[in-house]
Design a protein around this nucleic acid. Structure first.
Lengths: 319, 319
DNA sequence: AAAAACGGTTGACTCAGTCCAGTAATTGAT
DNA sequence: ATCAATTACTGGACTGAGTCAACCGTTTTT
């Protein structure tokens, strides 16, 4: 495993070199503008209404100089000069905080807002040039990859991190097969028989799909799929919940709960009278979700599947 | 589509901010060392045996000052000073090029090599700290994501870009289903029926898998899957090549050819006497590969599948 | 009430990086 | 062959982004 880390370190260093070089070209925006990199960062920070700490509700919470210095890790003396320059050319205004007369509350003037907007637009244009050679149909891949790098490296989640559900599209069934097969292989050692079963269920789902009676939802965070569930008809009165799964990266975010709730609601709306599902006792996280959704365990069966001795469970929810 | 680009631009800019901040912490390595960022880059470049241009075979091809200046985009005068500093503390040696006595050929002394190694090690240590919080089982995701960002943004291919084939693992069948379904949906408008067929074929492959008679290979570039093919027994004498596909991102790199060749070779080694495959006439790239591998078209059939009117083709290769 | 800490400011300084002019060697045009 | 243009490198002079240390007025702590 150490080898893997070393290889990754090498890759990161290569990536850094490449990325700084590529994005470095982007700095020419700043060369054009009358601002230093640091000045631009300060200007940008002034534009942010709220700092990292949640502002007192209601108040716009304009930042103070020391806040910005801490945030951007800029020398206070240097920051003073930058702020004076900004004030001299009319980009910012500063008034002493009545609550603490040492502090100065900073804000952008309309002229400052305009300068910031212009800078942003220029930077956006440069960034757009960066991706102008990326084919249209691979843009989402790039976005997903960037997002993945960010989250894996500890980029704190943002408001766009909301979980969304969408109906399935072409390729989603395959995605579910792949992810679940891999997930249960890693976590429980299930063999490839499980993947075969998943593929069969997936194929059946498509073959026997009845619009308005069968459903599949993919849960996404920021455009990246993180979970899925299927709701299929068994007969006129009974619907079956199948193949629920949540990616390891999205555990504990209520994704599973959302997916199950969606199934229950849709099943009710469709007029089904009962919702059943089959799972295995070792999947304790899923079990907790089913219990909380109102399912009750009605039977257990022992079976040898996927290379393991397992205990299957049938759960039912009367709608 | 413009919206998508705009959203991506916003994401990239966010990523930049995050990444420069995160990796910026990494610069403290240089703070410790006696070197400027630029000095370090120069030292690093001196360590590279060969520049971007292929060196004359055999000769180590030590870089000249101007080459490094061009490569790293540093001022020639500045570079002179840096190189003198290096020479003064005994890290580099320079001798005039006999072929062009204006030029100075640079090389690291053993002491220089040591300094470079130390710097590299320190940088590696810092980078390792960057990923110390990434769980072991997600390292490969990070690597793949970084690689994807690089290739999409035009990072030139490197020597590790060689295509490698490996047998299938758990999850690969699902991956093939997903990728092919999506690929043909985008490129030819095939509907989800195709995905159902893929899933069925995949399930059958696993169910009826006979070791030594059935095979699946995944083509990878730098650890990322870029294509796949299946070789399955039809009867004792006849093998069938199925579900060949190459990712759009890896076209024109001989991936398809490699996969087909692998099938042909393996089929011969297994003692099959004939290799058959079924494809569609619109898949011209695949057709060319089959022809060049020696297959001959034996029959055509018209069918309505996947929401389209298609012409199927059966190809045969006598082994 | 004195001491310590905080927010901000000023002056003095450093040093990474740039610009320009110059020298020696090489190439190209006549 | 000869002269102009170009290339590879160098030294001097300079800029300006960023740092350090001392300081002032205000607030908090003891």
């Amino acid at each position: 495993m150490l080898d893997e880390r070393e290889a990754l370190v090498a890759r990161i260093r290569h990536f850094n070199r490449f990325y700084t070089r590529t994005v470095g070209l982007l700095d020419h925006t700043l060369g054009q503008s009358a601002f230093t990199l640091t000045e631009a960062r300060v200007l940008f920070e002034l534009g942010h209404d709220s700092g990292p700490v949640a502002p007192t509700a209601g108040l716009p919470s304009r930042p103070t100089a020391s806040e910005i210095a801490a945030q951007l890790r800029v020398d206070a003396a240097y920051l003073t000069r930058i702020l004076r320059k900004f004030a001299d050319i009319g980009l910012t205004e500063a008034r002493t905080d009545p609550a603490d007369r040492r502090r100065r509350i900073l804000s952008l003037t309309p002229k400052g807002e305009a300068a910031l907007a212009a800078l942003q637009a220029a930077a956006d244009r440069d960034t757009a040039r960066l991706i102008e050679n990326v084919p249209e149909d691979r843009l989402d891949e790039l976005g997903a990859a960037l997002r993945k790098v960010g989250t894996l490296l500890g980029d704190p989640a943002r408001e766009e991190e909301a979980v969304t559900l969408r109906p399935h599209r072409v390729g989603d069934v395959g995605w579910v097969v792949q992810r679940q097969a891999r997930l249960y292989a890693v976590e429980y050692g299930w063999n490839i028989e499980f993947e075969a079963m998943l593929a069969e269920i997936g194929a059946d789902f498509i073959r026997n799909f009845v619009p308005g009676r069968d459903f599949c939802w993919i849960a996404e965070i920021g455009g990246e799929p993180v979970g899925a569930v299927f709701l299929v008809h068994q007969d006129h009165e009974v619907a079956k919940l199948r193949m629920l799964h949540v990616e390891a990266s999205a555990r504990g975010m209520g994704v599973g709960k959302r997916l199950v709730a969606q199934c229950v609601n849709q099943a009710r709306a469709c007029g089904y009278v009962r919702l059943v599902l089959w799972t295995n006792d070792i999947l304790v996280a899923a079990r907790a979700i089913y219990e909380r959704a109102g399912f009750r365990l009605v039977s257990e069966d022992h079976h040898h599947s996927f290379g393991k001795d397992l205990t299957g469970q049938t759960w039912v929810l009367d709608l």
